[in-house]
Amino acid sequence: MNVVDKGIEIVAAGAREYLTFRLGQEEYGIDILKVQEIRGYEAPTRIAHAPAFIKGVINLRGTIVPIVDMRLRFGCAQADYDSFTVVVILNLRERVVGIVVDSVSDVMELAPEQLRPAPDLESSIDAQCIRGLGSVGERMLILLDIERLMAGVDMGLATAAS
């Protein structure tokens, strides 16, 4: 295992697959094993007093799923929802959460030598939620630790009962 700054670990035991998605001009990657499904965007039911980036909830085959708009979560400009806008349903430990993204690009396999530590910069994303950067040719992916990001206190999502 390679250990980078701040104790963030990048697993080097072989290649890993990431679902890549876009928010504006930025491209992000999340561990494909956390993805349950990808759905077209449908307006969720709004919940009173929820943080602005929590768009509401949807009923997914009997499971109530909170929907987080990643543009709002990261402080980006408000996006128009169009035919490319999707909701990525994530299975995080015992919690199901949906994230709204501008579009899904593809599933990409990254070998350990394609991974780099993230620079230590001021950002709207907690640095501990960034696993590192992945590079493929001219493409640069921001690799997110989506479980850590969704578990943040500021998310306003209650933890699943044990």
Rank of each mutant, 00 (worst) to 15 (best):
N2T: 14
N2P: 14
V3A: 06
V3H: 11
V4I: 09
V4L: 12
V4G: 06
K6V: 04
G7M: 09
G7I: 02
I8W: 02
I8D: 01
I10D: 01
A12V: 02
R16E: 14
E17V: 07
Y18A: 06
Y18Q: 02
F21M: 14
R22E: 11
L23A: 05
G24Y: 00
E27S: 12
Y28N: 08
Y28A: 08
I30Q: 03
I32S: 07
I32H: 06
L33H: 10
V35A: 02
V35S: 05
V35Y: 02
R39A: 04
G40K: 07
E42A: 12
E42T: 15
E42W: 04
P44E: 04
P44C: 13
R46F: 02
I47V: 14
H49T: 03
A50P: 03
F53H: 15
F53N: 02
K55F: 02
G56I: 04
G56W: 07
V57P: 00
L60N: 02
R61V: 02
R61W: 11
T63M: 08
T63N: 13
I64G: 01
I64T: 15
V65Q: 08
V65M: 04
V68R: 00
D69W: 07
M70G: 00
F74R: 10
F74V: 02
A79I: 11
A79M: 08
A79T: 07
D80Y: 09
Y81V: 12
Y81P: 01
F84C: 03
F84M: 14
T85I: 10
V88S: 02
V88A: 00
I89E: 07
I89V: 15
L90V: 07
L90M: 09
L92P: 04
R93M: 13
E94S: 11
E94M: 09
V96G: 06
V97C: 11
V97I: 13
V97M: 10
V100Q: 00
V100R: 00
V101I: 12
S103C: 12
V104G: 07
V104K: 08
S105V: 13
V107Q: 05
V107W: 03
E109L: 10
L110E: 09
A111I: 03
A111T: 15
P112A: 13
P112F: 10
E113N: 14
Q114R: 04
A118E: 09
P119S: 04
S124A: 12
D126S: 13
D126I: 07
A127M: 07
A127F: 04
A127C: 03
A127I: 11
Q128S: 15
R131T: 13
R131K: 13
G132P: 02
G137P: 00
M140T: 11
M140P: 00
L143E: 01
I146H: 04
L149S: 00
V153T: 09
D154I: 07
D154Q: 11
D154S: 10
M155C: 05
A158N: 08
A161N: 07
A161P: 06
S162R: 13
S162D: 09
